[in-house]
Amino acid sequence: MRAYYFDNLPGDQRLPHDSGNSVSDETLKSIGVLHWHIPIDEEGLYERKVDEVAQERNYKNRDVIAISKESLGDQLEVKLKTFYHEHMHEDEEIRYIMKGSGFFDVREHDTESWIRCHMGAGDLMVLPAGIYHRFTLDENNAVRTMRLFKDEPKWIAYNRGPETDANQYRVDYVNSLQTVAVN
């Protein structure tokens, strides 16, 4: 995974939008974003390593989704617009890229800057509950992703706005950042 600040220039969301300013692992950790690279292998050893992360984080369920023209047909562009709208979840979002690639953009709370995380096969990312983020494919236009869940699979997005800013999960997330900054 490669992380850098989004350039905020107009253009297709699937383009790199690389500002040239890299983002360190420490910066990602400071906003609660964790990631690992677990290479896909023929023997399926990657599954054991993904299982270890899932067990450590108390994830019990998973599914696999494909986002591409082949899998979604005419709904692809509609889905991408939904995923790209700035939102948060009340659960951690954990994704393991099995094939293809895409971008997770995460909002750096203090600066309001977007950090773009380009993920490819073997990359696993955990986004904390309450962080504002968005997702899009890259120019390859296809990804196959394992989604992990603590309980039953669900994906409920709360689009950014005053009501979501007051959501308890968002408030808890922001408070956790202030606690980290103090320590």
Results as ranks from 00 to 15, higher is better:
V143A: 15
T136Q: 08
N167D: 15
Q13N: 12
V50Y: 02
I131R: 03
A3L: 06
D138H: 03
M1G: 08
V174A: 14
P16F: 08
F104V: 02
R2A: 04
I65P: 00
H85D: 12
R134Q: 12
V33E: 11
A3D: 09
S176D: 00
A181V: 00
R48T: 14
K60Y: 08
H35P: 01
G44I: 03
Q168S: 12
D18H: 12
S176P: 01
N8S: 13
A54W: 01
G11S: 04
D41C: 05
S101I: 07
K29R: 14
Q178F: 12
Q13C: 10
V78I: 15
D25L: 09
Y173A: 10
A121T: 10
M1E: 06
E77T: 04
R62Q: 14
T164K: 06
C117L: 15
G20R: 01
F6K: 07
H85R: 15
L127E: 07
L15F: 05
Y169D: 14
I115Y: 01
I40G: 02
R14E: 12
M98C: 09
A54C: 14
S68K: 05
V78H: 08
V53G: 07
S19P: 00
H109G: 01
H17Y: 11
N141I: 07
S68P: 00
L127F: 09
S24N: 03
F6R: 06
E43C: 07
D18V: 03
K154F: 09
K69E: 15
S30F: 04
I131D: 10
E70F: 01
S68R: 02
D138I: 04
V180D: 10
G11W: 09
L124M: 15
P10N: 06
K29M: 13
V143G: 04
D123N: 12
Y173I: 05
Y5L: 15
K154P: 02
D12N: 11
E26T: 08
T136E: 05
T82F: 12
I67V: 15
L127C: 09
I31G: 03
T27F: 02
L148N: 09
E52G: 06
R107E: 15
H87N: 00
Y173F: 14
R170Q: 10
H37E: 13
I67A: 05
L80I: 02
V23S: 05
R134C: 14
D151A: 11
T145Q: 01
R2V: 10
T164I: 08
G73W: 01
I131F: 04
F149L: 08
L80N: 07
